[in-house]
Design a protein around this nucleic acid. Structure first.
Length: 545
DNA sequence: TCGGAAAGCGCC
DNA sequence: AAAGGGCGCTTTCCGA
């Protein structure tokens, strides 16, 4: 394996070739303008490019038509190693915070909790020293295989994030406009679209509140209370319980108004250019390891507008969804044999019914959500004893994570990403009853967080491996540049979309399934849990499922 | 007048 | 007794 570290200096880009042992082999200075050609010339050896931040280096390479196979994203890997319990005694984890601990550049400007006044990784931060520090940290970890896999997966995720932004999600402005007009009524510049306006009028009438502005929570709350309802908020959950003719139009108004403000014509004009939606994806942007996004609400695209996601002529989408990913992950990591058996069905919830754990699919679903989120009310609370009885190992696993969190202990995902330590969860006997109760509530909330962290975070690791495996397979299909072959255009936690020439769709679909199986083997080896994916070949996103 | 907080809701 | 995890975005509200 060849590593090539890139570093920006006043002389130009210094590219340093390193051997697998970490020894310096060769140092070359390349003008920034010549970098893409230089990288392209070295890429056939499949080096692992070592750089401070993928979002600093890769977009310019992609723009020049250069796709790289592998990298080490030092900033993302540093964050994992800084916090991982598995590497807690390493030199990296025990060193003072420095520019490698800074938030990603795209978010640094808007993140108010940038506790440390850092801008980095500074462009001149030494990638070689950091790379060696990271290798030492991994080598010294008890389970260095898992941690190494996590860092590789995180880095390939960073490549995919840049590639997806480069390619963009194909978007039909015409279809989006059609949907908006159909749902909201014709656009009225500076005013509410026709249907929304009519609903507002109707609400004023039904609630006998001629001046009501339904967009104002205060206004609305008063109007509802004046109509004789003891509501404390204007949330749809509370309104849904009311028996009044205004409820239906009010809920519809809320839904429409939300569509208009979040994904209406204004969104379309701001975010869609040349038939592509290009959000900034932020790998590792969530504490659990999930991705976040910056701008455009990429990870919250409402179902209402998904018909506007349309492939280019002669191309199709292959949409894949990992069914019941989190329950499957829990079955694998807890080693719960009964749950693994249920997970051999393509519909795991139905599998739970068929193995006799619960009576209905709904019970299975809410029972599992309760186990993973720590829910105790409603159906998930009622199902808890049965889930506990049917899947004791799985339940004990999440319970242990919850207890750890309540005590302020750190928990870790399967591959070794650790939660932040809990703070302010203890009290002494001098505390007042009110203080004690508040602290207990905080501890319980933190326990729900750590309970969920281990499952959500491991699911995110599985998804990264799935994506990385798929990326490699896609590159071997067809010919031409990145966007001339089948390529990833969207990732949503447990869902992937590939934009592909129509003739390759079936091969892509097969690659989706094979990659899912490979991700399961990579993480869990021989544990007999199936990672089922549902795959659809469609001509618009909304036709999947 | 501005900006942060809170509410509310979309996604998984 | 009360008790659902993680996000991003827009709007309204309210105080500096």
């Amino acid at each position: 394996m060849v590593y090539i570290a890139l570093r920006s200096t006043s002389r130009g880009v210094v590219a340093t070739e390193l051997s697998d042992d970490g020894d310096l082999v060769l140092e070359t200075v390349v003008a920034e303008a010549d970098l893409a050609a230089w990288v392209a010339a070295r890429e056939p050896e499949r080096p692992r490019w070592v750089w401070g931040d993928t979002s600093r280096w890769y977009p310019q390479l992609l723009a020049a038509g250069v796709r790289v196979d592998r990298c080490v994203d030092l900033r993302l890997c540093h964050t994992i190693l800084r916090n991982s319990a598995a590497a807690a005694s390493s030199a990296l984890a025990t060193a003072a915070r420095d520019s490698w601990d800074a938030p990603p550049p795209a978010r640094a400007a808007t993140t108010s909790d940038a506790l440390f006044d850092l801008e980095g990784p500074a462009d001149d931060a030494d990638p070689i020293a950091e790379w060696r520090r990271q290798r030492d940290a991994v080598a010294g970890a008890a389970d260095h295989g898992r941690l190494g896999l996590l860092l590789a997966a995180e880095s390939v995720g960073a490549l995919v994030a840049a590639e997806m932004r480069f390619a963009g999600l194909p978007w039909s402005v015409e279809e989006h406009d059609r949907v908006l007009t159909e749902i909201l009524g014709p656009r009225i510049p500076g005013g509410r679209p026709a249907r929304l306006d009519a609903l507002a009028d109707r609400l004023r009438e039904l609630l006998d509140a001629p001046a009501l502005n339904p967009d104002s929570q205060q206004d609305l709350l008063k109007a509802l209370q004046n109509a004789g309802f003891r509501v404390e908020s204007t949330s749809k959950w509370e309104i849904r319980e009311i028996d009044h003719p205004a409820v239906e139009p009010l809920l519809e108004y809320k839904s429409l108004s939300r569509l208009l403000s979040a994904n209406g014509w204004h969104w379309l004009e701001e975010w869609v250019r040349d038939g592509r939606f290009r959000p900034v994806y932020v790998p590792g942007g969530v504490v659990t390891g999930r991705w976040a996004s910056d701008g455009g609400g990429a990870l919250q695209l409402p179902k209402q507008v998904r018909s506007a996601v349309v492939p280019d002529p002669g191309w199709r989408f292959v949409v894949a969804d990992a069914s019941q990913l989190e329950p499957r992950v829990l079955a694998a990591m807890s080693g719960d044999r009964a749950m693994a058996k249920a997970g051999q069905a393509s519909d795991m919830y139905q599998g739970m019914v068929d193995t006799g754990a619960v009576e209905t699919r709904e019970q299975a679903k809410y029972g599992m959500l309760g186990a993973i989120y720590g829910g105790t009310t409603g159906e998930s609370g009622r199902m808890r004893p049965r889930i506990e009885k049917a899947f004791p190992a799985a339940m004990a696993f999440v319970e242990a994570a919850a207890r750890a969190g309540e005590h302020g202990d750190v928990v870790s995902t399967w591959l070794g990403r650790s939660s932040p330590p809990g703070e302010g969860l203890g009290y002494d006997e001098t505390a007042s009853e009110v203080q004690k109760r508040r602290t207990q509530q905080r501890a319980a909330a933190w326990g729900r967080f750590t309970r969920n962290f281990v499952v959500q975070g491991t699911a995110a690791e599985w998804a990264l491996c799935w994506m990385g495996s798929l990326r490699r397979r896609l590159w071997s299909l067809g010919g031409g540049s990145l966007v001339e072959k089948p390529h990833l255009v969207f990732f949503l936690h447990d869902e992937l979309i590939v934009h592909t020439p129509a003739g390759l769709a079936e091969e892509v679909a097969a690659a989706m399934r094979e990659s899912a199986a490979e991700a399961g083997r990579l993480l869990f080896g021989g544990v007999p849990v199936e990672f089922a994916v549902s795959v659809a070949i469609v001509d618009r996103y909304s036709d999947a499922k």
